[in-house]
Design a protein around this nucleic acid. Structure first.
Lengths: 120, 120
DNA sequence: TCTATCGTTGACATCCATGTCAAGGTCCAG
DNA sequence: CTGGACCTTGACATGGATGTCAACGATAGA
């Protein structure tokens, strides 16, 4: 599929898809005419990228994370350097803290909303 | 306490504390000489702000969220306009999606790391 | 009293994710 | 073969969170 269709399917824009590519997050093939050609599986990948961006992770980190998440467990151990592994350790910790913070605050807001609603 | 101490306690910087103030997230008193004076409870508040920022929420939203989270349940119903309530509803939904996305990806990374480690 | 350390404000710089626009190429439908 | 819809690259703009710097005031210790 071409860039416009992928943009529609992922609620993004061609501009962003080119940006993600430039950041090394996706690598579409090219048609003979130079147009980018995206495989089906990239729909999920882009949705995942957008989810992680929305959750506050920078593309730099997302780029490191993505290879660990490929459904076919073709783990590339060659590129799994020790520093990268420790980066991932740190990052999962940060994600856990984010999750806790978000959960705590979301629940508090929910509670607030429930109280307000119960008085309506 | 003064701005430098609060910055140390919250792992932030004076610059950021002034920024949060400018965005209406905190409102320190002033000493006679013009220095900002921060009460103890602001330590937690700033930590919360930084947690939410790190989780990807913008100051604009955090500003709306904070009043719902004050421990002494002095809910100000006067300013709880309908639009604000629906904003909060939307925001809790977004937070839930973020939490799910982060959890899913963190678990996948953990799993990856476990596999790699089991081969070491 | 001098100097270091901290505070003040304001301006400018930076990084990142995004938008927007220009100039041009591709392709299909009429 | 022409017009419109889509693609290309590249440049410039923007908004939000943060750094940095300048010029100045306050305070405390040698």
């Amino acid at each position: 599929m071409r860039i416009g269709e992928l943009a529609r399917l992922t609620e993004s824009t061609p501009r962003l898809l080119r940006y993600y590519e430039q950041q090394g997050l996706i690598t579409p093939r090219r048609e003979a005419n130079g147009y980018r050609a995206y495989d089906e599986y990239l729909v999920d990948r882009v949705l995942q990228i957008r989810g992680l961006l929305d959750a506050g992770l920078p593309t730099r980190i997302i780029k490191q994370i993505l290879p660990c998440l490929d459904a076919p467990r073709t783990i590339h151990f060659t590129d799994a350097t020790p520093e990268m592994l420790s980066t991932l350790e740190c990052e999962t910790d940060r994600m856990t803290r984010r999750i806790q913070c978000l959960t705590r605050n979301r629940d508090a807001i929910r509670e607030y909303l429930d109280v307000v609603k119960s008085l309506a």
